[in-house]
Design a protein around this nucleic acid. Structure first.
Lengths: 126, 126
DNA sequence: CAAAAGATTCGACATATGTCTATATTGACA
DNA sequence: TGTCAATATAGACATATGTCGAATCTTTTG
């Protein structure tokens, strides 16, 4: 599973808060962040995440979610797996049912990453 | 050009702040947000945006950017176009050079969208 | 005007991705 | 133990995407 939280404090960023706008990302950092954003960058997965997050109790099972779409159950399952692998959804199996909930810390980290820096960046090139 | 800023106050969200976690996104909203996230969800484009944003003066021309990658100049130009079309980069032509800068408001909106809601969501299904 | 430099557009190609159907797995329960 | 219900996995297929080289456009300058 991709670990976005780990990104928030990479060695080379010890000097600073996490933000795209503070300094150029290394290729490796960009690869990792892109994995998480790719997981989010799909209309079905955005809706799945928003449905799960705003569901009563903050969680929903696959059967709840499948009803919301005109897509096959395996397709929904696939999208949930992508979100889970990216660390954006947490998974808990209870009996026959599997419940998903939003991983708030991962979303918070991602949002912080995107938020423009308030302070002007130090002069750098690449 | 996709207009993320417009999303921040859609008619059906008048009740509330903008957040994925507040209520289920409509399919149309999800499509629009996905367009912006798709633009961000690429390692090269993430690096381009971070380089532009942290460049002295907050802007960089294409020639500055091409040096940072082992990719052809048309490829860089393509990625810049994607970011610009998504509203994440602003473009200004001065003489022969084209300067890009990060669109801070768009990034702020996107970050707000991803940030988990503090208040519990109202009970809703899809 | 012509030539050069910066940038974009075009067309092609290989890879990645979203979706489906069919099948497998897991757990509840008679 | 056998069957059923809820999810997940596998394999196939069509479409989307990232990259390139070649050509085109635009602006400066000799």
């Amino acid at each position: 599973m991709s670990n976005l939280l780990a990104w928030t404090a990479p060695p080379e960023a010890a000097e600073c808060c996490s933000s795209l706008s503070r300094r150029p990302l290394s290729p490796a950092e960009a690869d990792e962040i892109a994995l998480v954003l790719k997981a989010l960058a799909d209309p079905v997965r955005l809706r799945l995440l928003s449905i799960v997050a705003s569901h009563p109790g903050g969680e929903a099972c696959v059967c709840d979610l499948t009803e919301c779409f005109e897509l096959s159950q395996p397709t929904i399952s696939h999208h949930l797996k992508v979100l889970h692998s990216a660390g954006l959804l947490q998974r808990e199996k209870r009996g026959t049912w599997v419940y998903y909930r939003a991983h708030a810390a991962a979303l918070t980290s991602l949002a912080a990453l995107i938020t423009p820096a308030v302070e002007p960046a130090l002069p750098r090139s690449c």
